[in-house]
Design a protein around this nucleic acid. Structure first.
Lengths: 325, 325
DNA sequence: ATGAAAGCGCTAACAT
DNA sequence: ATGTTAGCGCTTTCAT
């Protein structure tokens, strides 16, 4: 209540502040209030440009609410170790966990021990109950990506899949399989190529694709970076996109519209995802939100149709076996 | 000196630690030691994927040395405000200042007041004495980019320049101008197109290029993102790269080798820049380094020749004026 | 409406 | 080799 301070006192303070250049000591404040005023943003690899937009939005929202953002890459291995380190040390008040292939059972055990921790899982495809979650409709969106290809006339559709470290099914892969079944299309395991979301793995997937005896006429890639690598690879092998193969990506990274052919993709609202999750996390930290009701926000993706998809020129082709590759 | 603790005591401690799940309270430690154990990485816009690799390397090096990394976007305006906030509040011990178009005189004033602050300027093109600096040989490297085009036979070379917020000359633009002079090439001001390092601005520069009455046969772009946008733009306008225009980028972002045509570019050793600067900053923070001798490390860039540059098909062409654009 | 005092959890200095 | 103590700068509570 600023009204409770008299005008005169406020004057005196203001003068003293500017005169001495006083600034609050955050360490002392944190110690006394048992609150760091900081959240951690943890991701598998900060080197992925996918996170640029997200980081930007997290920074903005956290800053807006007076929180600092500590960024961390080290979220492999036993979660109890780093969870302990972040929370018990009062280094941070909350954790934004991005796309982590986490040891869910380990997390659960730790959280049962220590009571509910302010953690929000973001952009993850693993929809486990009990965790606060802000993500996209990955499964359904991948279904719509397939739908888009089917609408164009494709009957033979492959997948460049993302990493599948754990047993539980990857949502995008699941969505792909279900969509194929729904459309009564053949599901060929050799048309599902494994990747790890990096451009390089997309490029490799392209080589595998080119070497296939029979090739699908379209491919869904689990993210844009792999799609870009894939297209680059098949183009270098002498194939043309979309004439020889249509490609759909996922995410709509900034680059997607500036490559050629411009990439058809399912747009994830990354900035929104970041803002919502950050805001929710801080609500939890500040006790505004009822901890009994986990956050559970799933945003819809939008199909952005660009030039990398087109009707197929025919059925799956038996390739002439002499690629310069 | 771990030897000074008896085996028995060490046992007792270890047992107690695991039993109680004790973790050091960082806030208390920071308060007592007057040191945060944290550095700030400040950049103009975290949304730029250029920083992904850098962030990754900074995180690795800082973590290695036991420091947390606070990321910040808010470095516009009066530097005294945010400098005060970071340092006087003991929120952070040091500052990594990336590519900031900063108010140098304001910085100077503040640093004179407060004594030498642990700040390392990184990746900046502004080479001001007195600051700790880790950067690339921007001017010289841009000269080599021009050299590469000249070697291919180009006589008419344009520039898509980066942002020039301040009065002092941009190093890359300067390198370009000097190189042109050195080779005795004409310097046409309408062949210098302004950009802001974003893909979008490169795309716009492409439109301007296409609309030119007389066009250069090659263009140097001040960064890769603009180069990608530029190529995308001119290709959509019906021109071919490198047949109609050769393009050199700057940075060698991950994407550069996977676009088509693969981008010729001057590679900045971004990870190295990040590791070196982080390490130097922590040295300064810890008093290992003599503050009287500012750090001054300038790395050489490497020309990565790819498919976006080729010999010109002829002299600067007078375009037929009917682009579908 | 303002002042005084206790204490958050650590570390460094000093005492044993 | 181990134990004790003061105090970092803030916030909160209690007293004026």
């Amino acid at each position: 209540m600023p009204e409770r301070v008299s005008q005169a006192t406020r004057e005196r303070i203001a003068v003293a502040v500017t005169a001495t250049g006083y600034t609050l000591n955050q360490a002392a404040r944190s110690l006394r209030r048992q609150r760091a005023g900081t959240i951690v943003m943890a991701m598998p690899n900060a080197g992925n440009p996918y996170y640029s937009t997200i980081l930007d939005a997290v920074l903005a929202e956290a800053g807006h609410r007076g929180y600092g953002v500590l960024v961390s890459n080290r979220v492999q291995g036993d979660p109890t170790i780093w969870l302990r380190d972040y929370f018990l040390s009062s280094r941070a008040d909350g954790l934004l966990l991005f796309d982590i292939t986490l040891d869910v059972s380990g997390m659960r055990r730790f959280m049962e021990e220590r009571g509910n921790l302010p953690i929000v899982v973001v952009c993850d495809e693993i929809i486990e109950p009990g965790f606060n979650l802000v993500t996209s409709d990955n499964r359904e969106a991948t279904g719509r990506a397939v739908q888009h290809l089917v609408d164009l006339g494709h009957q033979h559709i492959g997948l460049v899949a993302g990493p599948t470290i754990h047993d539980y099914p990857n949502e995008r892969t699941l969505g792909f399989r279900q969509a194929l079944a729904r459309h009564g299309l053949a599901m060929r395991e050799d048309w599902i190529i494994a990747g790890d979301h990096s451009i390089g793995s997309g490029y490799q997937a392209g080589s595998q694709f080119v070497a296939l005896d029979e090739r699908p006429s379209a491919v869904v890639c689990a993210n844009d970076e792999m799609a870009l690598g894939f297209i680059s690879s098949v183009q270098q092998a002498g194939l043309h996109c979309p004439r020889d193969v249509s490609v759909v990506g996922f995410d709509d990274i900034d680059m997607a519209q500036y490559v050629s052919p411009a990439l058809t993709t399912m747009r994830q609202k990354r900035a929104e995802l970041a803002t919502i999750s950050t805001s929710a996390l801080i609500d939890i930290v500040e006790g505004v939100r009822d901890p009994a009701k986990p956050v559970r926000i799933i945003l819809r993706c939008d199909l952005i149709a660009r030039a990398s998809t087109a009707p197929p020129k025919g059925a799956a082709v038996r390739p002439a076996r002499e690629f310069r590759f």
